[in-house]
C-alpha cells in the first residue's frame, strides 16, 4: 500500500499557510461567526447563541444604517471627485515647475504622513466656532461678525470633514497623476500641436486619455480608504451633530463598543464590506478599459 505523500510545494508552503490562516483567517471567521449571534461585550455567554441572519435582517431594515450608508457614498463621491480635480491641477502645476520640483514633490507627501487622528484634531481646531482659525480669520477680515458653527451645523460639518479628507489625500491623486504625466510620450503631444490643438484641446484629447489609468488607480485606492473612513470623523464630530455626519464605520464602532452590540456591529460591517468591494471592482473595470483604450493590453 502506498502511503499518501504531500507534494513538496505544499510541504514548503505549509508554514506560510498555517501562519496566514492563524493571522488572517481566524479573526475573520470569528467575526463572521459572531455576526450570527446576539453577542454583546457585556454578556460573553451570548457568543454561543446562534440566531441565524437576524442581525443582517435588522441592519437591512435599520434607517440609521442606511442613512450612514448613503452618507458614506455621498462623502466618497464628493471627496473623490474633488480630490481628483485638485490632484490633477496640482500635478499639472508641479509638472511645469523646473526648479525645486523634487522638494515640492516631497512636500506634497507630508499630509499623507500625518496620522488621521492628528489631522482630525488639527481641523477640529481650525473649524472650532469659538477659537478656530477660520472663524477668527473671517471675523477679523470683517466678512462675517457671527461665529459660524462649522462643526455643529450638519451641512457645514460634512463640508469640514470633506475638507479634511481632501487635505490629507489630494496628494494621493497628485502623486499618481504626476507619475502619469512623466510617463506620457511627447510625440503625440507635438503632433496634436501641429494638428491645430490649443493647449486645452491637447490636454483634453491626448493628455487626459493617457492619465485615465493613473486616475482610476488613485480612485480605487481612495475609494477603499473613504469607504472605511473612521478616525477623522470620529475626532472631528464623533458622527454628530445628531448623527448628521454619521458614516458606516462610526456607526459600527458606536454600535459595537458604546452600545456593546458586537454581533450586530459585525453584521453591519460585513454588509459594508460590499461597498468597498463594489467600488474596487468598478474602478478596476474602468482601469482595464482605459488601458485597453491606449492599446496597453490588459
Amino acid at each position: 500500500m502506498k502511503r499518501f505523500k504531500m507534494p513538496p510545494w505544499l510541504v514548503l508552503l505549509l508554514p506560510a499557510i498555517i501562519i496566514l490562516s492563524a493571522v488572517v483567517l481566524i479573526p475573520l471567521v470569528l467575526s463572521l461567526y459572531s455576526s450570527f449571534t446576539p453577542y454583546k461585550l457585556t454578556r460573553p455567554e451570548s457568543l454561543y447563541k446562534w440566531i441565524g441572519t437576524f442581525n443582517y435582517e435588522k441592519a437591512l431594515g435599520d434607517t440609521k444604517f442606511w442613512a450612514a450608508f448613503g452618507r458614506t457614498i455621498l462623502l466618497l463621491t464628493i471627496a473623490l471627485n474633488l480630490e481628483m480635480l485638485c490632484g490633477l491641477g496640482l500635478a499639472l502645476m508641479v509638472s511645469k515647475v523646473t526648479r525645486g520640483q523634487r522638494a515640492l514633490r516631497t512636500a506634497m507627501m507630508f499630509p499623507m504622513m500625518f496620522s488621521p487622528i492628528l489631522v482630525g484634531f488639527q481641523f477640529k481646531f481650525i473649524f472650532n466656532d469659538n477659537v478656530g482659525l477660520v472663524n477668527n480669520a473671517l471675523q477679523s477680515l470683517g466678512i462675517t461678525d457671527m461665529a459660524i458653527p462649522w462643526l455643529v451645523d450638519g451641512k457645514l460639518a460634512m463640508f469640514a470633514i470633506i475638507f479634511a479628507e481632501m487635505w490629507t489625500s489630494t496628494s494621493v491623486f497628485a502623486i499618481l497623476i504626476l507619475a502619469g504625466l512623466f510617463a506620457i510620450p511627447q510625440d503625440p503631444l507635438e503632433a496634436a500641436k501641429v494638428d491645430g490643438c490649443t493647449p486645452i484641446q491637447s490636454f483634453r484629447f491626448v493628455t487626459l486619455p493617457f492619465l485615465m489609468p493613473f486616475i482610476y488607480i488613485a480612485m480605487a485606492i481612495r475609494s477603499l480608504d473613504v469607504a472605511r473612513a473612521y478616525d477623522i470623523v470620529q475626532i472631528m464630530t464623533n458622527g454628530g451633530p445628531a448623527r448628521r455626519t454619521e458614516l458606516l464605520w462610526t456607526l459600527i464602532g458606536r454600535t459595537g463598543y458604546v452600545d456593546a452590540k458586537m454581533g450586530y456591529a459585525n453584521a453591519m460591517g460585513y454588509i459594508s464590506i460590499f461597498l468597498a468591494i463594489f467600488f474596487t471592482i468598478y474602478f478596476f473595470r474602468k482601469l482595464t478599459a482605459a488601458r485597453a483604450e491606449l492599446g496597453m493590453g490588459v
Partner: peptide, 20 residues
C-alpha cells in the same frame, strides 16, 4: 505663432500617432 497657426503638417520620425 503657435504651430496651429502656421498651417503646416508634420510627419514625425517615430510617427507620433495617437495610440488611443
Amino acid at each position: 505663432l503657435a504651430p496651429r497657426d502656421r498651417n503646416i503638417s508634420m510627419v514625425f520620425q517615430n510617427y507620433a500617432l495617437y495610440p488611443h
